[in-house]
């Protein structure tokens, strides 16, 4: 199945009985669905199990997908809610963005190695680590907005929140991340200048 095939064409093929088309859909979205469940569950094995359940659920109900929204929005909504269901069962201990001290204490590499400039990859890794330490809902807002390139409206739809709530969360979260990574960001700016 070509990578240029649209989601709609793949869905039609699956409904007609083309098994391989569903594999293409899974391969297209597996990383994103897994990221959503991982951000909520914070455990790779649990996240993978939940992500597999998501694709099974989606397969079962694919024929009822009304195509009023994008397939990805529908898929991520199922992924987020499935992950929350798993989380409720397991009662994971997670931290909230509301308390500054809740953040992972990110190592300040600049203070340890003053001569070594901060590489972009390091910043990315630290960001990923910081996002993983966020409360599940908060981490999802950030990843849906940036990684999945969803609009504020779509994030609100997926997470069953209001648009203004998502905007406020996004603003608070980015400010919290910025203050957490301030040193690294300053280095990044200096590298660019």
């Amino acid at each position: 199945m070509s990578t240029n095939t649209s989601d709609g064409q793949l869905i039609d093929a699956v409904i007609r009985g083309d098994h391989a088309a569903y594999r293409s859909l899974v391969e297209r979205y597996q990383k994103y669905v897994f990221t959503i469940t991982y951000n909520v569950l914070k455990n790779r094995e649990e996240a993978e199990e939940a992500a597999q359940d998501v694709f099974i659920k989606v397969y079962r109900t694919l024929a009822s997908f009304e195509r009023k929204s994008k397939f990805s929005t529908w898929l991520y909504t199922i992924a987020y809610r499935t992950a929350l269901d798993y989380q409720k069962k397991k009662k994971y201990n997670t931290r909230s963005i509301d308390s500054e001290e809740s953040y992972l204490q990110i190592e300040d590499t600049k203070s340890k190695n003053p001569d070594q400039s901060m590489h972009q990859e390091d910043l990315k890794e630290k960001l990923k680590a910081a996002i993983r330490e966020l409360k599940p809902g908060d981490a999802s807002v950030i990843t849906l907005f940036y990684l999945h390139e969803k609009s504020v409206q779509e994030v609100a739809q997926i997470m069953d929140l209001t648009v203004s709530n998502v905007k406020t969360k996004l603003h608070r979260l980015r400010e919290a991340l910025r203050s957490q990574l301030e040193q690294q960001l300053k280095t990044e700016i200096q590298d660019l200048l």
Binding site: K31, T35, E48, K124, L192
Partner: peptide
């Protein structure tokens, strides 16, 4: 800089046998 770094974050990879 934070905005651009967030845009470059990559998705997590599930296991090879996932699909």
């Amino acid at each position: 800089a934070l905005h651009q770094a967030l845009q470059k974050i990559e998705a997590e990879e599930p296991s090879m046998r996932f699909a």
